[in-house]
Design a protein around this nucleic acid. Structure first.
Lengths: 224, 224, 224, 224
DNA sequence: TATGAATGAGAGTTCATTCAT
DNA sequence: CATGAATGAACTCTCATTCAT
């Protein structure tokens, strides 16, 4: 059974774009870290600057203001995640396999870049309206809709139950993923830095639960 | 099939406690509203006071500081929710029925007090560490563990699949609930103020999806 | 020859308005002083606050922002000046006498409150557009028009030459006044703090020059 | 009656000085424009540079700092104006005729280079002390004294009244000029861009008013 | 209890100036 | 000469908290 190749490495900068100034990247990187550690309001521009090893004013050389900086961080992270979802969606495999891949990808990223996940999962959906009104909000919807498309395909293929709206199915899948990630991030479900085995175990369980929410009852969970 | 009595009214003040000053209640109530509207950092003490129709300084008469005020709001809301879960848990019905009841209860509350849900679902898990370190965090864990107990009981009774940790099962159930509520709050899944039928439809779907995540595959979803 | 009573005391707060908080007055007063000393951009809110012997934040308790504070200062000063012009205009005396009174009034104020004059004369007409767009600008026009009315009356009465537009006449009178005051303020024309005699001498000269600009040539300058 | 040749073209660079780098001139020119548009504090080095179509840092290659740049602008403009006054002063004609020429010259410049006038008239006398302490201040005094010399000559020749100090006379003449120009700049007295006739009319009136301030009463205003 | 004026530390943003290339 | 990235001090504005009444 074919399995889409795991695009984990996408967690690296979406656009290493030759021309991008090194310090701009450093700032973006630092912002991700500081933001993950302290949350939107807890992080000050000064923190970002010093974390990036850069002068205060340089942040404003590259970004109009704090909101734009953080929006950039969000956008970049989401772009990576969406890129992965899209790649998986366009790849081979049944709908169930694809959704399993999405979940495994997310947990893999958590392993290599927990801050990124923390930011996406814990901060993004709950930041001020100014921010939510921006592209971030739309991006979030895009992700949901991409998953909803997978769900719909699965419903049409007879894999997934049809008594759920595709959007509700997508929300459920993402909810299972989100809450389990949150539990991992906060240490409720696993050690803060889980071992490889622990991670594999979680992957299996989260996939099982997420698919359980949408599979036609009685169908076997896909071998993994 | 017995169904636990729906403790919807618990959304009212947990403790109308005879002696509690009227203005204190007004402040708490206003804080919930303002907090739901603007989020933790977006709401200023001045907003709360004016929403409550009360003098600025009075807030500090009843609450040591902003954190304590908001912690009180959280605690109260969670106490209500936990009270409901506990009541359901100690009531009649199978584990699956109980979990269904929990979900239906949450959606009912969303209907009557969307702000409360918004606060619990969108704000609580993402507020600053100071706050998270407080009782709120523990309260959140308590809720998770209560649901995990239900899951465990269901596993022992053969209803729920045993290839999931009870905590993962609980997280999955709550994740499905959370994300669908978030979708309702943000208008992605339903109109901002859904009709009765829409709400019932959502209840059915969310219960289906949540139970799907943990039921032994092939078992019939419980009639509702 | 009747001479309008000199409303010098109008230099005091236009509205001692019973209800006005003492500290608000202190801030306004301090702002006038600091603004006169350092100019619009040279004065910082911190300067105003400390000059007023008041906490930083209190300035923002009474005024929305720096612009509003300074606009208030301007407005108050102009209101005083306009009040005086109006009183003179409605009082007895020929047009020439009235214009003489306006000039003498201005020089009197310079004696008792040089800062106020400095602000009105040196700063107002040259501050940022935001400010000029506000009520200050209109107020300045009002003053000009009031003087223009006097000029017009004098033209109709045969005192003043009619080959000047009334507005040009007014601008000329105010120009003579302004530039001579500027010369006094900057120490080019008199000692920074002129003696009574010096002041009287200046009054006579400025009145002479200003009326010369508009009187029918050959008419005697009005006795003073 | 001979009339000094009108040195209008002096509004061009005083010293096209062979060796002066083209870009330096561009910066100076841009600075005049930007400064006229936004005032001393409203204009940033970045504005000047981009207006001049020149790199940021180049401004600092040619000028030590912002103050020096603006001082240079002032100096240049004043040098032009003073050069004109001096030329007129050393030329033929009575004192009254010469003063009339000065005023007409100023209004002509306003026609061709309103920004320059705006800067000289509206900005120079009201900029920070640091600046005023520089050569600009002295330059301004020089202009006043040159006019005062004309006045004095007129007084000695019996044209002008002797009950005014020469400096007061000069201040009055310049005051009439300044305020009427200000009125034109701000649109209170004429359309922002007056027609030729309007301008001629203003010239006549302003000369009339200015000379009226200092002429021996009864003497005929000089034919124009 | 109740009020709201008063306080001041903190954070975002601007912009003149420097400097490596 | 020319460029523009980099620096950081300075200043405005916010808002939690205190306190006299």
């Amino acid at each position: 059974m074919a399995r889409p190749k795991n695009p984990t490495d996408a967690a690296q900068p979406a656009t290493p774009s030759e021309g991008e100034p090194e310090k701009r990247r450093a700032i973006l990187h630092a912002a991700l870290k500081v933001f993950a550690e302290r949350g939107y309001h807890g992080c000050r521009i000064a923190d970002v600057a010093s974390e990036a090893g850069v002068a205060y004013g340089l942040v404003y050389h590259y970004f109009r203001n704090k909101d734009e900086l953080l929006e950039s961080v969000f956008d970049e992270q989401w772009r990576i995640f969406i890129g992965a979802i899209r790649a998986i969606s366009e790849g081979p495999g049944t709908a169930a396999e694809q959704i399993g891949s999405v979940i495994r990808f997310a947990l893999d990223v958590f392993r290599t870049a927990p801050e990124a996940v923390r930011v996406l999962i814990l901060e993004v959906p709950r930041t001020p309206d100014v921010l939510r009104a921006g592209s971030t909000r739309q991006t979030f919807e895009v992700a949901t809709r991409l998953v909803a498309e997978m769900v719909q395909r699965g419903q049409q293929g007879g894999e997934f139950r049809t008594d759920l709206d595709a959007l509700v199915g997508a929300a459920s899948v993402l909810g299972v993923l989100d809450m389990n990630l949150a539990g991992m991030v906060t240490g409720l479900l696993t050690a803060p830095l889980p071992s490889d085995e622990e991670l594999e175990r979680m992957k299996r369980q989260v996939v099982t639960a997420a698919l359980g929410a949408i599979l036609v009852p009685g169908s076997a969970a896909p071998a993994r």
